[in-house]
Computed example of a mutant assay.
Amino acid sequence: MRSAIFGLVFIALTGVAFSVQTEEAEPGLTPRVQAAGQAHVPISVDTQMQNLPVPGVSIAFIDGGRIAWTRTYGLADLATGRPVSTDTLFQAASISKPVAAMAALDMVEEGLLSLDAPVNEQLAGWKIPDNALTARTPVTLRHLLSHTGGLTVSGFPGYASGTELPTVEQILNGAAPANTPPVVVDLAPGLRQRYSGGGITVVQLLMTQAAGADFTDLMQTRVLGPLGMSASAYAQPLPEALADHAATGHRADGEATPGRFHTYPELAAAGLWTTPSDLSRFVIGLNDAYTGRSEVVLQQPTARAILTEVRDGWGLGLKVAGQGRDLRYSHSGSNDGFRAMMVGFPERNQGVVIMTNGDLGGVLIASLLQAIAAEYDWPGY
């Protein structure tokens, strides 16, 4: 028997879990960066949430190819006092990207897309504007998924409730009502990694054209449905029927995001609503494909390509580090009022997803990851 973080005690051999809700069982959190020789008194999760402030957090831990435990703290909505539950929906923000990348690579396996042919040869209508840089090295899907295509627009601020939403082509052209500049190449493709949500939006357009389908339906058919992610949807704006299940975003001053949350028509880059348990099913699916235990969406060679470094610590849609048993992948998420993190260890068959509804959630996530890594002997933290 081992005492796991957050007061959850598991019988490892049987997989039976008992919840021990005692303050003593919770190890407490310490700063991610600590000064040598200085004592750092651990504080509780609730205390750090209040100090930041971060209203709510939801966590799911994967071990042995299953969701081993979950934990929730705080409130999904301060105004109503509604607590966070395991069913509470959060904006995955940029964690939308690796989930979309899995679907794109499923289309590569099917022969609908090419990973290394020029993207402009696969696009109809809108194309990446040509210039001297693209003439020398055309942008490919591999470039886009690894953020090495030299494209601009790192991220998106979203649109306040009731605001007119742009089409994908308007976003890429930087045309009204889009609130971001045009997506262009201003760095030689393949030269280095530079994060580009604009590049992933090109992928979104590419996928819908190749599949002849709406992006929301495409993702449901290719990834969300097969992996059993029944609580997840690339739904922007969020349907009214789901609003009561969604967390409200909160900014650094503790105030709610106006209208509760922003809308992100940049679906592949930032548009996924989900839960930690559902994102854990993505982690399990990728871990299983990588090791060959199961190939529900992707075949093993493709999964291994995802977690092979292309450049500067990035694979195809995910950051990668370590090797062998210590190989890990990760992706963070940051939308207005939301912060999230997903980590997987395919050879250890473990991982964790942490989602918060506060702009300062990244600070809390760093402390939680440090505590989890210490408990489960994870390297790199």
Score class of each variant (00 low, 15 high):
28 G>E: 10
323 Q>V: 07
198 G>R: 04
289 A>T: 04
171 I>F: 12
124 A>F: 11
200 I>D: 09
51 N>C: 03
309 E>W: 05
178 A>H: 00
366 A>I: 11
28 G>Y: 09
109 E>I: 02
189 P>Y: 00
273 W>C: 00
253 D>K: 02
204 Q>L: 04
290 Y>F: 07
235 A>G: 05
51 N>E: 10
134 T>L: 06
141 L>R: 09
51 N>Q: 13
312 D>F: 01
191 L>F: 15
117 A>N: 12
184 V>I: 15
215 F>M: 02
264 Y>C: 01
4 A>D: 13
363 V>Q: 12
83 P>E: 07
90 F>D: 00
137 T>K: 11
375 E>P: 03
181 P>S: 03
223 V>L: 02
311 R>H: 10
287 N>Q: 09
71 R>L: 05
368 L>A: 02
175 A>N: 09
178 A>C: 06
250 H>R: 02
2 R>V: 13
125 G>K: 12
194 R>N: 10
225 G>T: 15
225 G>K: 13
366 A>G: 12
356 T>D: 00
195 Y>G: 03
379 P>Q: 14
37 G>P: 05
335 N>P: 00
257 T>L: 05
336 D>G: 00
34 Q>M: 13
17 A>T: 10
249 G>C: 00
160 A>M: 06
238 L>I: 08
190 G>I: 09
42 P>G: 03
152 T>D: 05
212 G>F: 11
212 G>S: 06
202 V>H: 09
355 M>F: 08
206 L>C: 10
105 L>M: 07
219 M>A: 04
356 T>R: 11
380 G>P: 14
71 R>A: 08
241 A>H: 03
376 Y>C: 04
354 I>S: 01
305 A>V: 05
175 A>E: 15
276 P>V: 02
340 A>T: 15
295 E>N: 14
341 M>A: 14
143 H>V: 08
186 D>T: 10
277 S>L: 08
328 R>T: 12
58 S>R: 03
150 G>Y: 02
381 Y>M: 11
305 A>W: 08
216 T>L: 08
136 R>A: 12
337 G>Q: 02
365 I>E: 13
130 D>H: 07
381 Y>R: 09
228 G>W: 08
314 W>E: 14
381 Y>N: 07
50 Q>V: 05
124 A>P: 02
289 A>N: 01
289 A>Y: 14
220 Q>N: 06
362 G>T: 08
129 P>T: 04
291 T>C: 15
195 Y>T: 09
111 G>S: 06
309 E>S: 01
326 D>M: 07
66 R>G: 04
59 I>N: 00
261 F>D: 03
54 V>T: 15
175 A>P: 03
213 A>N: 14
182 P>C: 15
258 P>A: 12
141 L>H: 08
181 P>F: 13
108 V>K: 13
20 V>Q: 13
203 V>S: 12
113 L>D: 04
231 A>L: 08
33 V>N: 04
179 N>H: 09
41 V>N: 11
225 G>Y: 07
171 I>C: 06
265 P>R: 04
282 F>Q: 04
44 S>R: 07
255 E>M: 13
237 P>K: 07
